[in-house]
Amino acid sequence: AQASVVANQLIPINTRLTLVMMRSEVVTPVGIPAEDIPALVSMQVNRAVPLGTTLMPDMVKGYA
């Protein structure tokens, strides 16, 4: 199954992502693919992302 990017902590709005904030997990619905984690580093989220939330393309500025 495809692993997705999941928030490893609460990520406040406009925060630049770092590796420690993200983990890969097989979840439904599928979000951003886990292999994109390196590309997500330093991108900003456009909303607060609670712990355990799957990151979707529309949550990350410049990803989609």
Rank of each mutant, 00 (worst) to 15 (best):
A7H: 01
V60C: 03
E35M: 13
G62R: 06
Q44P: 07
T54E: 02
D36N: 14
M59T: 06
L51Y: 14
L51V: 10
V26M: 09
A3N: 09
L55D: 01
L51G: 15
I13R: 10
M21T: 03
L40K: 01
P38R: 11
P38H: 09
P12V: 06
G31T: 01
R16M: 11
G31D: 00
G62Q: 06
V5D: 00
I32W: 03
V27R: 15
T28D: 12
L19G: 07
A48C: 04
L19E: 10
G31A: 03
V6P: 01
A3V: 09
A39P: 03
I13F: 13
P33Q: 06
G62S: 09
G31W: 03
V26K: 10
R23I: 07
M59I: 05
L40N: 00
L40C: 03
A3P: 15
P57A: 14
L17P: 02
S4V: 02
L51E: 15
M21W: 03
D36P: 00
M56P: 01
Y63N: 04
T28L: 15
M21N: 09
A48N: 13
P33A: 11
Q2M: 07
A39F: 07
R16E: 09
P29H: 04
V27N: 03
M21Y: 05
S4M: 02
P33F: 08
Y63S: 04
T54W: 02
I13P: 10
R23M: 06
I32V: 11
N14A: 10
Q2E: 08
T53R: 07
V60Y: 01
R16D: 06
V27L: 05
S42Y: 07
Y63T: 04
V6R: 03
P38T: 13
V20H: 15
N14K: 06
L51N: 11
N8F: 04
M22P: 00
L51R: 14
Q44G: 09
A39L: 15
M43F: 10
R23W: 04
Q9I: 09
R23Q: 05
A3L: 11
Q9R: 13
Q2S: 13
A64E: 15
Q2V: 14
K61H: 15
K61R: 13
S24W: 06
